[in-house]
Amino acid sequence: MAQPLLSVRNLVKRFPVRGGVLRRVVDQVHAVDGVGFDLASGETLGLVGESGCGKSTTGRCILRLIEPTSGEVRFEGRDVCALTGNELAAIRRDMQIIFQDPFASLNPRMTVGSIIGEALEIHRLAKTRREREAKVAELLETVGLRPDHMSRFPHEFSGGQRQRIGIARALAVSPKLIICDEPVSALDVSIQAQVINLLEDLQEKFGLSYLFIAHDLSVVEHISDRVAVMYLGRIVEVAPSRDLYAQPLHPYTEALLSAVPIPDPTLKRERIRLQGDIPSPMNPPSGCHFHTRCPIAEKGLCDVAAPDFREATSGHWVACHKRG
């Protein structure tokens, strides 16, 4: 494979937990614990996992909205973590983010025109006011809104429309990579499909790459080329979308897949129920993070050593002692 667009290696983020009178660091939350993956140009990588497993933190670390504790993020070969000042501002033209909550992600005091136009302003992509407005109008049409929506405020729109505004804002700087942080989780199912289709159309039109973060496997299956499954700060399985859904290797992936509802009430299927709760990321289990809930865990092996990440079949990677 040629040089990947985005390459993440051993990404770690620990949040300090402060306590006591002196506000000393008493503990750490291991939000992201050695995540690594590649993303090719024009590809969509789905990133799934339960709430709190570190998906969003991973996305924000890549953009350096959160400073990673350690690890390497390379965008087109350049080390994002080493950039400062102007270089960092420049690379932000290439990487953008779409947020989960369309009500929190738009400044309620700015018109839609100035929300989208701000990106053009910051990066000086429009010389005159008229040029900027023309570009904003074009962006609004690209995401399926009307140019005269420009003078309105975010609260005048529905959730789906607001999400489109968020997408237009991300598109304004013509990025190469967009990190979609659960972009449809807050929307109605009927609207979800519209937004997903819009994202796919845009990908085709502009050659975008997506890191698509979600907790809904059926949404991810539809849009992703490859899917990475995260559990408690680590990636446990990466595979081409079809492979993963047809032949999940990791027991956690199996359990996740068995929880996806099938729109056919007559169809019976074995449901794998995981025991217990997700362990605290403040104190993750030894060895394989999943061994406390794993149906096939072996004492003396899984609770001692963390499994290597290895390629089971071509392009299908898994981190499990017992499978693959």
Partner: peptide, 26 residues
């Protein structure tokens, strides 16, 4: 900590712009 402030940061907005355009008015 609001997402619209984060979005502006992701766009490369300076601290001054964050304060003047996004945080202070709200």
């Amino acid at each position: 900590e609001k997402e619209f402030v984060e979005a502006a940061r992701a766009l490369g907005a300076s601290r001054l712009r964050l304060v003047v355009r996004h945080i202070l008015p709200n």
